[in-house]
Design a binder for these strands. Structure first.
Length: 605
RNA sequence: CGGGAUGUAGCGCAGUGGUAGCGCAUCAGUUUUGGGAACUGAGGGUCGCUGGUUCAAGUCCAGUCAUCCCGACCA
């Protein structure tokens, strides 16, 4: 009998109960959230915290084991780090402040600060530093599967965005970029295999790699209406361009007018019209000839950005260009100080401040307001270069300027040429393939692989001796997969109006056996069938409740195991079992004698 | 943190200032068993919390907490 552990053994409903519920929970809006709760896989404990019920525990184990198998095959080594992390770790990497209120913090009895780990670069680098001494020990790829805590601003969609979630996180250490790339490529293969084996269709897209260097980064996205990322692709085939919109280079499918201004710059009154759209309508001008001004600030800097009037700014690109990882829209106060006008009338012509200038502004940080000095930085998008007949704010209330000429009325500095600040969108040209246009789709991120570089090895002073006996700082890669999110997105991709349809690779059971019987005598016949099926090696869930048949059929569809066997009066009278494929709905009849072959042909994986 | 909404039985929801309700679920009994059964009976409530107005508050007012949805973070 298959009684070795819960992952491989068969169960009876009378001993291993269902937790299905009749109604959709009122706070659920997406399919995976509704179905996982209705089918009794999860229960909400608090916002962003979920209990896993018995079936979900098995699914999670199945997904984890697929991940383990592929990671181990790719040469990674599993460890387990503490979830609770000492504040010292985060202070060393300067992330104690950067992480802000996203980290769940606490103190121990001695008043020492700790945080529940939102990620483990610090812990893993510290661990590696404790034993990595020689180039001979590398490359090394360490991973763990464990809980992460992030105090999300807005948990939502059930398991898709939680405050406590299980993640597989791996960190690799290398002597050089070539070795890093080698492991990175292995992880690409492993990730493809992992998601394929989980029955999850993903697309790998180019991702923004953040402020720490132009290294490679790929996100594994599940295409979905409810996705929080916008993806831009040239198609969905192997060699098509696929990118996160944050990362996508902006190449317009139309051309911006390059005529020189024939008239001098001129101020015009534009009372109470502020947005580019309003001003364009007011002046009856083409929105593409406008310069849109966007102003951000943080505690150190004020970032003034000029972009084409018909487009939006890409903040991820600005972060990379400016090196500032955090900023927000500048306050009205700040805008008045730097432009001399209320918001809505800023522009490059006659702007009272210069790039690099230090300026005193009021900093309204929480409760206390104080005067602090900030550095002004000015950035121009490349699509403004050499253009004339431009229109922008006049740095004066209710005033705009027309006939502006780049190089005459304002100039893009030489060291700032070719900056790309615009958020690309559907219809723009595909980078390197100007004959194609980008298509937009939404995606949920389930995995991310990333060449990290030296940030943590430097911060934690991790060095090893190279062949020449000289100290060398290794480079790192990091590779994450959201385990619970994988479970949820599988449901998003695999369900119908009746319930979930689990891929057999991660399904808690292969077969849902519905017994329909009157009285103990008939039940005994079907109990006996269950034992025989278990002995054939099937992982089977036997609904032996004395409910009405409809209740059991509905539960079988809802919990979504891939095959449904029904044994009722046909079985009792003539030994016929009905077999239904949950996904296709296809039904066949089999006798106990012929079922062995059916199982070998269809159910053994 | 801004904008919007909701908190009433385990779940889903009604509720007009004047007796706390419905459906499902639960428990007991009888019948029923191939697509969410029927009947009879029973149990289950600090109406989120605190304060106020009123002869009287689930209902009106103020505050507060929680949850969800829309925007900035992320696996």
């Amino acid at each position: 009998m298959n009684q070795d552990n819960s992952r491989t053994s068969s169960k009876k409903a009378s001993e291993f109960p269902l937790f299905t519920v009749h109604d959709d929970p009122k706070d659920a809006v997406v399919a995976s959230h509704k179905l996982l709760i209705r089918a009794g896989f999860i229960r909400k404990q608090a916002s962003g915290f979920y209990t896993q019920m018995p079936f979900a525990v098995i699914i999670q184990q199945n997904i984890e084991n697929i991940i383990r198998d592929e990671m181990n095959k790719a040469g990674a080594i599993e460890v387990k780090l503490p979830v609770l992390t000492d504040a010292e770790l985060w202070k060393t990497s300067k992330r104690w402040e950067v992480m802000g209120s996203e980290m769940m913090r606490m103190t121990d009895r001695h008043k020492n600060p700790f945080a529940l780990g939102p990620t483990h670069e610090e812990s893993m680098t510290t661990l590696a530093a404790s034993f990595l001494k020689s180039y001979k020990q590398m490359p090394l790829n360490l991973y763990q599967i464990g809980l992460k805590y992030r105090d999300e601003i807005r948990p939502r969609y059930g398991l898709i965005r939680c405050r406590e979630f299980t993640m597989k996180d791996a960190y690799s250490f290398h002597m050089d970029d070539e070795s890093l790339d080698n492991t990175y490529q292995k992880m690409r293969v492993a990730y493809k295999n992992i998601f394929n084996r989980c029955g999850l269709q993903t697309i790998a897209v180019q991702a923004d790699s953040g402020a720490m260097g132009g290294s490679a980064s790929e996100e594994y996205m599940v295409p979905s209406e409810i996705g929080e990322e916008t993806l831009l692709v040239s198609g969905f085939e192997e060699n098509d361009y696929k990118s996160n919109s944050e990362k996508t280079e902006f190449i317009p499918s139309y051309s911006y007018e390059k005529n020189k201004s024939t008239a001098d710059a001129l101020k015009v009154e534009t009372p109470n019209v502020k947005t580019v759209e309003e001003v364009a309508a007011f002046l009856k001008a083409d929105i593409r000839n406008f310069i849109k001004t966007v102003i951000y600030e943080n505690v150190e800097t004020i970032l003034i950005c000029f972009i084409p009037g018909d487009r939006d700014i890409n903040e991820a690109k600005l972060k990379n260009i400016s090196g500032q990882s955090e900023f927000e829209m500048a306050s009205s106060e700040t805008i008045k100080i730097i432009t001399g006008a209320i918001p809505g009338f800023a522009g490059p012509f006659g702007l009272p401040v210069k790039h690099g200038q230090k300026i005193i502004v009021t900093n309204q940080d929480e409760s206390n307001t104080q005067k602090i000095e900030k550095e002004v930085r000015i950035y121009f998008d490349r699509n403004l270069e050499s253009r004339g007949n431009l229109i922008s704010g006049g740095n004066q209330n209710d005033t705009h300027c027309i006939n502006l000429q780049e190089g005459r009325d304002f100039s893009i500095p030489e060291n700032q040429k070719n900056l790309d600040l615009v958020l690309a969108r559907e219809g723009d040209l595909v980078p390197n393939h100007p004959e194609k246009k980008l298509l937009a789709t939404k995606g949920i991120e389930v995995g991310h692989i990333f060449k990290l570089g030296y940030k943590y090895t430097q911060a934690f002073k991790l060095t090893v001796l190279d062949k020449n006996g000289k100290a060398h700082t290794p480079t790192m890669g990091t590779y994450g997969i959201g385990v619970g999110r994988t479970m949820a997105t599988v449901v998003e991709q695999n369900h119908d109006e009746k319930g979930i349809i689990w891929p057999s690779s991660i399904s808690p059971f292969q077969v849902y056996l519905t017994g329909i019987f009157k009285g103990d005598e008939q039940k005994a016949v079907i109990d006996d069938l269950f034992e025989k099926l278990v002995n054939l090696g099937l992982k089977i869930y036997y609904d032996d409740r004395s409910e009405n048949p409809g209740v059991k059929f509905n539960d079988a569809d809802l919990v979504g195991f891939p095959w449904q066997f029904t044994a009722g009066k046909n079985f009792i009278n003539s030994g016929e079992i009905e077999i239904k494929n949950r996904r296709t709905g296809e039904k066949t009849m089999a006798s106990l004698d012929s079922i062995d072959k059916f199982i070998k042909d269809n159910l053994m994986i």
